[in-house]
Design a protein around this nucleic acid. Structure first.
Lengths: 142, 142
DNA sequence: GTACGGCTTGACGCCGACGTCAAGGCAACA
DNA sequence: TGTTGCCTTGACGTCGGCGTCAAGCCGTAC
């Protein structure tokens, strides 16, 4: 099949396939008129790349899987180098998730604190003789 | 104070401050010879930006906080627009964390599956009359 | 005077994964 | 024969948040 069909079957674009080729991830045969030609194995390989990309792997991280398939193994993750990438990715994910949860907690605290400060000002403002309101409080003014 | 001192006190670089200025986030007065001049309020403003950046906010998201401080409010999050950013960020974080956890689970499954497949091949290989090993198994060969 | 550090503006570089445009070749169909 | 659609290579654009370099000015110390 030609590049357009392969791209369509993998749910991507011809530009992407040429990019992968330029990165040495996806090799193509050429037919008599110079068009790139692919087979079902290329589709499998491409789908492997796309799956990993969807997981957030960057292109270089997919290389071991690609080379594993190219070496004739039944799956891209049939080789130790691929398993190593899985493991590294898992620890990266764990670290990232942890950091994001910490940030989430901090931002949540800030929100609570800021809302409390706002409410206290609002309460003061309703008390006769309380401080003058400095901020616009509650909803939008305009 | 001049730009170098402000940058140092905020733990950043002069390039960053000029960039913020170009984005309209950090205004500077100029002294007689054209040098940028800043005061303690600018430092506070800059620290507000940096804190949010550390949380993963992008620059545009810090703008409401900056404008809030500029308007004379005691804190960058004393204004409704800032609270709205907090809330939006929280939901973004929740969504992202959820996605990452889902990816983590999937990658974990893939790893387990691939390891099991490898071990089964290894077990077969130790059985006399079992299938020939096709992959390099276990540790590194070279 | 001159050496040095800090300041100025302007402009290009970087990263990853492509998008998009240009100019042209190839094949099938009306 | 011309139109249409797919293909080719090449090259520049995108995004954010700066880094880095160039050329030159300002002020102080020696």
């Amino acid at each position: 099949m030609r590049i357009g069909e392969l791209a369509a079957r993998a749910g991507t674009t011809t530009r992407t396939l040429r990019y992968y080729e330029s990165r040495g991830l996806l090799a193509a045969r050429r037919n008599h008129n110079g068009y790139r030609t692919y087979d079902e194995d290329d589709l499998k390989l491409l789908r492997q790349i796309r799956t990993l990309q969807d997981f957030g792997f960057d292109l270089e991280e997919t290389r071991p899987f690609v080379e594993c398939l190219r070496a004739g193994h039944p799956e891209g993750d049939s080789c130790p180098a691929s398993l190593a990438v899985y493991r590294r990715k898992l620890s990266e994910l764990d670290e990232l998730i942890g950091e994001l949860q910490a940030v989430r907690a901090q931002v949540g605290e800030q929100l609570v604190r800021a809302e409390r400060a706002r409410d206290e000002l609002a309460a003061d403002a309703t008390v006769p003789g309380g401080p003058d309101p400095v901020c616009e409080l509650g909803g939008r003014t305009r």
